[in-house]
């Protein structure tokens, strides 16, 4: 994967490392980094910086018995939760979000399908399946929308996005993403606020399908 040209912005890598992102954005960053050495290296750099900040933090006093308590437990069997391995076009973090099973697609009409992975007050994450050359209804958003291509490609007014590319669209952008020719486009889309679709029908669909 050397030809990824749209990366995670630096502030977002920093906030991933600092733990300030929502679950949905964590998922996008972790998935992109799984596909992109450039961003893996940038994430490592931010971790080194965070490590330096940890070194420099004023230490707090710990209880007397804590060290012995930890030393006494070194031989305990570690609690390890098995983490599903990557499969198909889904890197490990997505495989985990899918509980190791293929996505259960729901139709949105016109051949477009989605699979909601997560939804709460901090945002949502879902997989989108878009047939070749099909457009996703024009929509804007209140917050940020991240779209990471896992298979195929899409383009909109701003640019062309291939496998591994991440589009970061803020609330100024009302766009019509169109899938490229060839393989259907599968992408991971995440928002930190609900999407806004233009027109009555899409709004109704939005209510029905929770997108």
């Amino acid at each position: 994967m050397t030809d990824i040209s749209h990366h995670v912005p630096d502030w977002m890598i920093r906030d991933y490392v600092g733990g300030a992102l929502s679950y949905a954005f964590d998922l996008v960053v972790a998935t992109h980094v799984s596909m992109c050495d450039e961003c893996r290296a940038r994430l490592g750099a931010h971790e080194a910086l965070a490590g330096a900040a940890l070194d420099a933090s004023g230490p707090a006093e710990v209880s007397d018995g804590l060290r012995d308590a930890v030393l006494a437990r070194l031989d305990d069997r570690p609690r390890q939760r098995p983490r599903p391995a990557a499969f198909g076009v889904f890197p490990a973090p997505l495989a985990e979000a899918l509980h190791g099973r293929p996505p259960r697609w729901r139709s949105l009409g016109l051949g477009v399908r989605q699979c909601i992975l997560h939804e709460d007050r901090t945002g949502s994450a879902r997989l989108l399946f878009i047939p070749p050359e099909q457009a996703v209804p024009e929509h804007g958003h209140r917050g940020l929308e991240l779209t990471l291509v896992l298979q195929g490609s899409f383009h909109d007014e701003t640019d062309q996005f291939e496998v591994g590319d991440l589009e970061v669209a803020d609330s100024d952008l009302t766009h019509v993403p169109v899938a490229g020719k060839g393989a259907p486009c599968i992408c991971l889309a995440a928002t930190n606020a609900p999407l806004r679709f233009k027109g009555f029908l899409p709004r109704l669909t939005q209510r029905l399908f929770r997108i």
Binding site: D15, V17, A20, H46, L49, S57
Partner: peptide
């Protein structure tokens, strides 16, 4: 950025450090 509370506030500023 790294030691503060983990509120979902995106400060879209650079750290300005030579990383």
């Amino acid at each position: 950025a790294y030691l503060g509370d983990m509120s979902h506030v995106e400060i879209r500023e650079d750290t300005g450090l030579p990383l």
